[in-house]
Nucleic acid binder design. Structure first.
Length: 125
RNA sequence: GCAGUAAAUCGCCUUAUCGCUGUUUUGGUUUAUUCAAAAUGGAGGAAAGUCCGAACACCGUAGUGCAACAUAGUGGCUAAUAACCACCAGCCGUGAGGUUAGGAAAAGUGCAACAGAAAGUAUGUACAGGUCAUGCUGUAGUGAAACCAGGUAAACUCUAUGUGGUGCAAUGUCAUGUAAACCAACGUUUGAGGGCGGCACGCUCGAUUGUUGGAGGGUAGGCAGCUAAAGUGUAUUGGUAACAAUGCAUGUAGAUAAAUGAUAAGGGCUUUUUUAGCAAUAAAAAAGUACAGAAUUCGGCUUAUAGAUUUACUUAAAUA
């Protein structure tokens, strides 16, 4: 299975991010929130994903970096499960909206719940 | 020894699994590019605050005066500074040392607790003297000071010196687009209007123009800038020192919604408790292991910081 999370899979385009936040929909499983948008891009990928932590809740850069790394790690290890049924291209942004520093265990379980919610919402349509 | 002063240094380590990113090489596909493999590099003493000073870049006629701001003992050092070093002076400490907002009070203005009638365009009381008359004069009393001066410039002020502005989201370039494009209105050669972002003088552009509005396009994509740095380490020489010169060695992050990690196991270190022991110490358990993340680059300053180490020095009182 593929556990990589390379440069191409990261959401980097400022335009796309702006579009994501203005037009995208969201689901949440506290302390996580997922903003998603069906879109298309040139590369042969299912998803482009970014992570973000509010500066308001975590003042020092060290804490924010730590949480973002945990989010990326959880995404990297579990993404193959998430996208089994997904066929169209999507852009994702995972936000951490909690106020306490998490552990990897918590982040992983919450992220699984989060993507289950997401896929059920997608399949409703 | 305890206690204290100053300076300097370090600021977790190892292994395994799975990952991120720069560079180089090889291979495949190729205009570019992209993919795979291998090798190798990948956060700090403060990377932080952005408080000073520079490099570098652009704007600019950056010239004079005013304003504004900054600095303020003497000498030195430096690319430069308000930093740094040495010395003098004041103050604090028993001392090692620390600290200073250390130019000017007869240019002017302001300010001053308590006491006191009054601290200044003042004059009460008592006594004495004097006058045509009057706080006109003296003494007593309050106070550091009673009209004569003095203090205060982390009060205005004055003096001397210095300062053009904006900051790598600078700036250049490639791609896209293409445009000094188009439409309308207004203005003007005894010159409309604009630029020099504090003000004035002054300078300067000015019909292939200026302003306003419309419509339309663009709006942080790539590359360069970007990391060889007034670099780092070390030795010698000169200097009280900051620092300088010379020799030798070394080549050390470049991300951009922003890499430098995640998890597990083990080991250090510190503290506490328990057990054994006269003690040094040993064993076990638990807890802790800080502050904090490069963003153009340097030199300082300031602030945060668990814990550890080294060197030099001090000792009034109290204990041994």
């Amino acid at each position: 299975m593929n556990y990589t999370y390379g440069n191409k899979e990261k959401l980097k385009s400022k335009k796309l991010i702006d579009q994501l936040f203005t037009e995208g929909k969201s689901v949440s499983a506290y302390p996580l929130r997922l903003v998603y948008l069906g879109t298309t891009f040139n590369e042969d990928l299912i998803a482009k994903t970014g992570v973000s932590v509010s500066k308001r809740n975590f003042k020092t850069a060290v804490d924010r970096n730590r949480i973002k790394r945990l989010l990326r790690e959880a995404y990297r290890l579990n993404k193959s499960i998430f996208f089994n049924n997904l066929t169209t291209q999507h852009a994702f942004m995972i936000l951490y909206i909690g106020k306490d520093k998490p552990t990897l265990d918590v982040v992983e379980t919450k992220m699984k719940i989060l993507f289950e919610k997401f896929s059920s919402k997608i399949s409703e349509k």
